[in-house]
């Protein structure tokens, strides 16, 4: 019988937290910056306004939290998709490394950019 897995429990909690924040914030941000502004439906915000918002400490914390948790959300779901969807169970270790390594690298990049 397998042992109780605390790493899976932590991974699932982070996956869930990422699922909530990305579901709350990703659609509106993608809608604005990916569709509405590029298509010219509304004028994009001025650079000065963007900087004022992005330099606010609260925005920085929220953005970093959003990025880190969303990447951990991706890592969890993507590794399950590879394990099961593509039946790559034998490659478990490299897949986990790819997913969580990618999430950590992406989080560091986000931290450098957001606070840079």
């Amino acid at each position: 019988m397998a042992k109780r897995s605390s790493s899976e429990a932590v991974a699932w909690l982070l996956f869930s937290a990422g699922g909530v924040v990305s579901a709350l914030l990703a659609p509106i941000l993608l809608l604005l910056f990916g569709v509405i502004f590029p298509l010219g439906v509304l004028a994009p915000p001025e650079h000065a306004h963007m900087e004022a918002v992005l330099r606010h400490p609260l925005t920085q914390v929220v953005l970093l939290g959003l990025c880190v948790l969303s990447l951990l959300h991706w890592a969890h779901r993507f590794r399950y998709a590879l394990h099961e969807g593509l039946q790559l169970k034998r490659l478990r270790a490299p897949i986990n490394l790819l997913c969580y390594g990618g999430a950590i690298a992406g989080s560091l990049w986000a931290a450098v950019v957001v606070f840079g």
Binding site: M1, A2, K3, R4, S5, E8, A9, W12, Y80, E84
Partner: peptide, 15 residues
């Protein structure tokens, strides 16, 4: 039951 359920082959396998 937690020791049986909270395993990689238990609840954590469910997607």
């Amino acid at each position: 039951r937690l020791d049986v359920l909270a395993t990689a082959e238990g609840i954590w396998a469910c997607t």
